[in-house]
Amino acid sequence: MTTPVARRRATASAPLDGREIRALLDDLDGQIISMVLRRAELARHDQSVRRTSGLPASELARENGVLRRYAEELGRHGVDIGRAVLVLSQLTRGVRGKS
């Protein structure tokens, strides 16, 4: 199955209309959500391994590095996105559908 983004890459020379743009944005939002959920799953596993090893669940230096990377790549507001990603990564299972 091809995503709207993949289909759009194949026909990138034609101008986009509003409906196509919204479909591409929706597709990207879905990809972002899937990646954040995957990151949260991996972070929970990492936290579990750290706890089992007798270490703190999180590593402040690593978290600061993550925030720095978001800031460098996305600017000042990238830190807000980085913080949100870290918070979501620290939540317990069942993030989907929770607020």
Rank of each mutant, 00 (worst) to 15 (best):
L55T: 11
V85T: 02
H77F: 09
Q31S: 14
D26T: 13
R51G: 02
R22E: 07
L28I: 07
A61T: 05
A57K: 07
L25H: 09
R76M: 10
A71N: 11
L37H: 02
G65C: 06
L88T: 00
L91G: 06
A14L: 09
T92A: 13
D17W: 05
L55G: 05
R22L: 11
G54Y: 02
V85P: 00
L86S: 03
H45W: 14
S34A: 15
S99G: 11
A6G: 03
T11P: 03
V66K: 02
D26Q: 09
D46S: 13
S99A: 15
E72P: 01
R50C: 04
R50Y: 07
V79N: 00
R9L: 15
S89W: 00
L37W: 05
Y70K: 01
S53R: 15
R38N: 11
A12G: 06
L91V: 07
V5M: 06
H45S: 14
R19L: 14
L74R: 12
H77E: 15
R19G: 13
T3E: 03
A71E: 08
V87P: 01
V87L: 10
S13W: 11
V49T: 09
Q90S: 10
L67F: 02
E20G: 07
D29L: 08
G54N: 05
A12V: 09
T2P: 12
R22M: 07
A57W: 04
R22N: 08
E63I: 03
S99T: 13
A6C: 06
R19V: 13
P4I: 01
Q31A: 15
S89H: 02
G94C: 06
Y70P: 02
A84H: 07
Q90Y: 08
R38F: 08
A12N: 10
R19D: 14
N64C: 15
R76D: 15
L88H: 00
M1Q: 12
L60Y: 04
T3G: 05
P56Q: 06
Y70M: 05
Q47K: 06
V87H: 09
R22S: 05
I33M: 12
G78E: 03
L42Y: 05
R51W: 05
P56C: 03
G97S: 08
R7Q: 12
A71G: 14
S34L: 09
R19T: 14
E20W: 04
I21D: 08
L67E: 02
A43Q: 05
P15A: 09
D26W: 08
G65T: 01
V36H: 00
R68L: 15
S13V: 14
A40R: 00
V49I: 09
E59A: 13
G94M: 04
R8G: 00
R76P: 07
S48Q: 15
G18K: 13
L16E: 06
E63F: 01
A14P: 03
R22H: 07
L67P: 00
I33E: 15
S48D: 15
R96C: 02
L42H: 10
R9I: 10
A6L: 07
I33N: 13
E72A: 07
R69V: 10
R62E: 11
E63N: 06
R68W: 11
D26F: 10
Y70L: 08
V36I: 10
G54H: 06
L91R: 06
T92G: 13
D27H: 02
